[in-house]
């Protein structure tokens, strides 16, 4: 089956003056199958949001290709891109700043229908009402304004706006990170239901591992602009291969004091290096507890493991399994 989204060698550098560039994304490749939820995880500055923004062409990639349903959209003009925008939508993290405060809820949710001349008048109003109901909001809310809504309600409005054109792909950038636990649970339930019913593919960008563990079919782990490991969610959580993935999973506490206090942790030295001047060789070598000489000079490619597991970008893993760092 043709992937809904295919990214190959995506590069995005932002000029930082004095001839320097922020290497936000540096050669990322991934694909999403129809109906699949891919969790893109990484810490701040890993480039995961930039990947999302490039897919929407909210920012133009420096190099690489982005294909939507087999159409190369990397260099399409704004005009040529317009019909394709029906198929891809984004949900932002902050439900406070991503809705226009001067528009009513009905106007916000109906805007994509109007933009793409899909519906107008009575039909538009009916579709907005139906969509609001689908995301668990009363149709009467369409006359309200964003400031009158709670955070959870706003995020539902954001979802309704993204889904009203029944897109093939939804890019969700930390959609539940600003919400309280009890509200987060209801939004995650809603996203699960809608995804099952409507069948859209989803790139779910988050730093919260417990959320991707719940929601994602597959996971891609980013570090300093590159994808270091991908694979089925269950596999990654059961046996992470890349030393960074291991460190990341072991650092995230679990909400159970007995289990949490028994766990061993891979402690990373130092901080994430500056994306202005990423390290040569493997980008993780400056913090990796098992790095060898080769890691300092030669950049590892994201290649499949011999045992058929998901691809990993690590010199030590691709030959054989990497040592279990938590056992050291």
């Amino acid at each position: 089956m043709t992937p809904v989204l295919e990214i190959d060698g995506l590069v995005k550098h932002f000029g930082a003056g004095r001839g320097q560039a922020v290497h936000a994304v540096d050669g990322a490749s991934l694909s999403i199958a129809p109906g699949e939820v891919l969790g893109l995880v990484g810490e701040s500055g890993s480039g995961k949001s930039t990947v999302g923004r490039c897919i929407l062409r909210l920012t133009d990639p420096t190099a690489g290709t982005i294909r939507l349903d087999d159409t190369d959209i990397t260099h399409l003009s704004r005009r040529a891109l317009r019909p394709l925008r029906r198929d891809v939508h984004i949900v932002f993290q902050d439900p406070y700043s991503s809705l226009n405060p001067r528009f009513s809820v009905g106007r916000i949710v109906g805007e994509p229908l109007r933009r793409h001349r899909v519906a107008s008048g009575r039909e538009l109003a009916d579709r907005v009402a139906a969509m609001l109901e689908r995301v668990g909001l009363a149709a009467s809310l369409s006359r309200r304004y964003p400031h009158e809504l709670s955070g959870g309600q706003r995020q539902r409005v954001g979802l309704a706006r993204s889904l009203i054109l029944e897109p093939k792909l939804v890019v969700a950038d930390e959609p539940v990170s600003a919400l309280d636990v009890s509200v987060q649970a209801s939004v995650l339930n809603l996203m699960t239901d809608l995804q099952r019913d409507m069948g859209f593919s989803c790139l779910f960008i988050t730093h919260d591992l417990s959320v991707v563990k719940y929601l994602a079919d597959r996971i891609a782990v980013m570090y300093l602009g590159q994808i270091v490991e991908t694979g089925p969610a269950a596999e990654i959580f059961a046996s992470p291969q890349h030393p960074y993935t291991q460190a990341l999973l072991s650092a995230a506490p679990v909400p159970d004091p007995v289990e949490q206090r028994e766990r061993s942790r891979v402690v990373l030295g130092g901080d994430i290096p500056s994306p202005l001047d990423p390290p040569a060789g493997c980008r993780f070598h400056t913090r990796c507890p098992v790095a060898v000489e080769r890691c300092r000079t030669e950049e590892p490619a994201l290649v499949s493991r011999r045992d058929g597991g998901g691809p990993v970008a690590c010199h030590l893993v691709t030959g054989a399994d990497v040592p279990d760092l938590t056992a050291i």
């Binding site: 649970a185 719940y214 159970d256």
Partner: peptide, 25 residues
């Protein structure tokens, strides 16, 4: 109890990818 059950971790211990409903308050 509601807070603890609303956490995604409350249901993923059993298995990843099942997506059972999270408890809402």
């Amino acid at each position: 109890m509601g807070l603890m059950k609303a956490l995604p971790a409350a249901v993923t211990a059993a298995g990843v990818g099942e997506r059972p409903r999270l408890a809402e308050i």
